[in-house]
Design a protein around this nucleic acid. Structure first.
Lengths: 219, 219
DNA sequence: GTCTATAATCTGATAGAC
DNA sequence: GTCTATCAGATTATAGAC
């Protein structure tokens, strides 16, 4: 019995070490693409970063695209966690409009925190790369989470959700390609959200507990 | 006299031929990046396309980045021409709101017509590439043309123009990274424009020659 | 202005010893 | 699982003949 237990725990240790090495490699890959650009990742540089020969990396990943795939998946897992934190912080205490506003700012922050991650996750800039089915499933889960957030804010019309998503990610890609310091992007996001609410869910602005009958935005 | 004239025209012919070759190379470069991606451009492939050895291309361009720079400039020249055609077609006959709407759709069409051009012009995805001062000046001219269009529609607030630009280019980048066939993007653009007008220039929706007192959009 | 030749370096990936 | 050795080729760019 003890022999079997030892064998199992040995396998466990090996699996753990392997997973740790894989994670280390992926982490190094992120550092590299932030410096050299997404397409500038090379197995040689990657090996140097983790203290291996480039060829040894192939013990952990089948190919370069396999590494991109792991990064892709990790990115969406990060989004899921990041936006879930938001939900938790909201805790159901906020009204739908504020909920939507917080969600928008948080998503904006997630995207702009790492431009190259945004590039990998939301733009098709790597020619030939296609995420695996498993990684794409995580991407779909993140999208679903987003739609669930919209639904909580009373936005069930798919076209409305599309518009909101498009405007939000659009603002992000604008921020990333333009001078990040020159504009008041937080303000721009806030104004866009207000505009969106009035367009797709005006009832959120006419709340009963606040005796504001005017539909216009309060400054 | 005739000698001097001949000399000049000879130089002219040479300059013309040289310009034609440069244009041919740039055109081939566009074809290549549409197939291989923006970062996938190689001097070898480029030479093959124009029927030269790769090394001969260096007679026309100092470096690979010099070619990107020419493409960058040409892209913005195309935008200037494309949007100027729009102005001409409008001819001052349209009301400001329609003017804004047409402008938005036309810009959207320009961007989505060539995804890789959009990538080069509006996104910073080529690591290390910086446009030359001359090319950047063309980019600024295109931006100024855009702002002039907004001004004609009565939108003078810089923040409002920023919001409009961000939402428009944002919708574009969304369309480019997502399934182009799955959504009704033209409708989405139209709805975004209506939303923008109501947000940044509501007076455009309450026109005197159309006795519509309702602020809501007419279907 | 185009060529050949070539420098000098990088690329992803595999075979096989240990 | 890491290494050496290596394949088979790519890359940008330069030198110099013609």
């Amino acid at each position: 019995m003890s022999g079997k237990t030892n064998a199992v725990s040995l396998l466990d240790r090996r699996a753990t070490r392997r997973a740790a090495s894989r994670a280390e490699i992926v982490e190094a890959a992120w550092l590299l693409v932030r410096e050299e650009g997404l397409a500038g990742l090379s197995m040689r540089d990657l090996g140097d970063r983790v203290g291996m020969r480039a060829q040894s990396v192939y013990s952990y990943f089948d190919s370069k695209d396999d590494i991109y795939d792991a990064m892709f998946r990790q990115g969406y897992e990060e989004q899921l966690a990041w936006m879930a934190d938001d939900e938790e912080a909201a805790g159901g205490f906020e009204d739908p409009a504020t909920r939507l506003r917080v969600m928008a700012h948080r998503f904006f922050a997630f995207c702009t925190a790492d431009p190259v991650r945004y590039q990998l996750l939301f733009q098709r800039t790597l020619p030939g790369f296609e995420p695996s089915a498993a990684s794409y499933a995580v991407a779909l889960a993140a999208l679903e989470q987003m739609h669930a957030g919209f639904a909580q804010a009373g936005i069930t019309d798919p076209a409305a959700a599309d518009l909101a998503t498009a405007v939000l990610t659009g603002l992000t890609s604008q921020q990333l390609s333009n001078d990040p310091g020159g504009m008041r992007w937080e303000r721009l996001v806030d104004r866009a959200v207000t505009m969106l609410i009035r367009e797709i869910a005006p009832h959120l602005l006419a709340k009963p507990d606040k005796p504001t009958t005017r539909v216009r935005r309060t400054p």
